[in-house]
């Protein structure tokens, strides 16, 4: 803490800092709050442009309509499937790669480290990867085409490795003296001690898979396999930039007060609310994990 008496300059400085904090929060939150407000406001108020910040006349009609649509539920199910499976496998594979690289006695770790980090700076690019997945692995129209290509990444491995390196070596040493195998040390000692980094990795992967839309665009022709992001794209973006989407048309029953506008807001709301709900619970571990990864990475 600084001195008891703050100078004039100090006060100005503090003022600027708090102004900045307020600005950051408003700029960040306003679009999100506005989007949610629009989707749960009274349809008439929404369409007249009377909603500016908080909802005006609560009406969950638009959200209900979107969630009541069978295709939307299918998209939702797919996204949840990709997120859960991808997150579990991603965390496992990343830890499997990161833990040996954190052990000094693993004499080949230099080679693996080089092999992995090189992929951060050079890659085959879109088309060769596309051919590997479609021609070599025959994964077109398979759920695994979404899961496998982003199973891990060099950066995630580096972040996790830094965390494992920060654990005291004595744990491993003493377990070895007690006769534990390397697998057992990893599964029963290291992983339970690594919950912060597991949470961060899980968040990374969950976000990546929850938000992923490009692989679906490339590898999924079947509509029934596609994730929510593809639906958001077709309903919100393409219909705004081009024709109004047929899916939206069908939702707008004659006689209903709902507008395409509110449907679009509701679709966005439906896809961000799970993240907004989970986020406060994750944010505590998040900062810790991100800092560990950032400092040593």
């Amino acid at each position: 803490m600084r001195g008891y008496h703050k100078s004039f300059g100090e006060r100005i400085f503090d003022g600027i800092v708090y102004l900045f904090a307020a600005l950051v929060m408003i700029v960040t939150l306003y679009p999100l709050i506005y989007t949610v407000s629009m989707s749960i406001s009274d349809p008439v108020a929404a369409s007249r442009g009377e909603v500016f910040f908080l909802p005006k006349g609560i009406d969950f009609g638009a959200v209900k309509t979107v969630l009541g649509d069978k295709t939307v539920l299918r998209y939702y199910y797919n996204t949840v499937w990709y997120t859960v499976v991808g997150t579990v496998l991603g965390v496992v594979v990343t830890c499997l790669g990161a833990y040996p690289l954190s052990r000094k006695e693993f004499t080949h770790r230099g080679i693996f480290m080089k092999l992995f980090t090189f992929t951060m700076f050079f890659n085959g690019g879109l088309i060769p990867t596309y051919i590997v997945i479609t021609n070599y692995l025959h994964l077109y129209n398979s759920r695994w085409a979404i899961i496998l290509p982003s199973l891990t990444a060099a950066w995630y491995i580096i972040v996790a490795r830094s965390f494992f390196e920060s654990l005291p070596d004595e744990i491993v040493e003493s377990a070895r003296i007690d006769g534990a195998s390397e697998y057992r040390i990893f599964v029963q000692l290291i992983l339970p001690l690594s919950k912060p980094i597991l949470a961060v990795l899980a968040l990374y992967f969950a976000v990546d898979y929850w938000n992923s839309y490009f692989p679906a665009l490339l590898y999924l022709g079947k509509q029934k396999l596609q994730p929510l992001a593809v639906y958001v794209r077709s309903v919100v973006i393409q219909s705004a930039l081009g024709d109004l989407n047929a899916a939206v048309q069908t939702m707008l029953n004659p006689g209903s007060l709902l507008t395409a506008l509110q449907i679009k807001y509701a679709v966005v709301t439906v896809s961000i609310v799970p993240m907004l709900l989970i986020y406060p619970f994750l944010s505590r571990n998040l900062e810790k994990g991100l800092l560990v990864g950032a400092v040593k990475g």
């Binding site: 950051v24 929060m25 960040t28 939150l29 679009p31 999100l32 989007t35 629009m38 968040l203 976000v207 929850w210 938000n211 839309y213 992001a229 593809v230 958001v232 794209r233 919100v236 973006i237 705004a240 930039l241 506008l261 679009k264 807001y265 679709v267 966005v268 896809s271 961000i272 993240m275 907004l276 986020y279 944010s283 998040l286």
Partner: peptide, 19 residues
Amino acid sequence: ISLLPYFISTTVIVGIMVN
């Protein structure tokens, strides 16, 4: 709060922009 938008899909962000 400043971190939050990073965890929102690019698709959704473009969607919000379009709206």
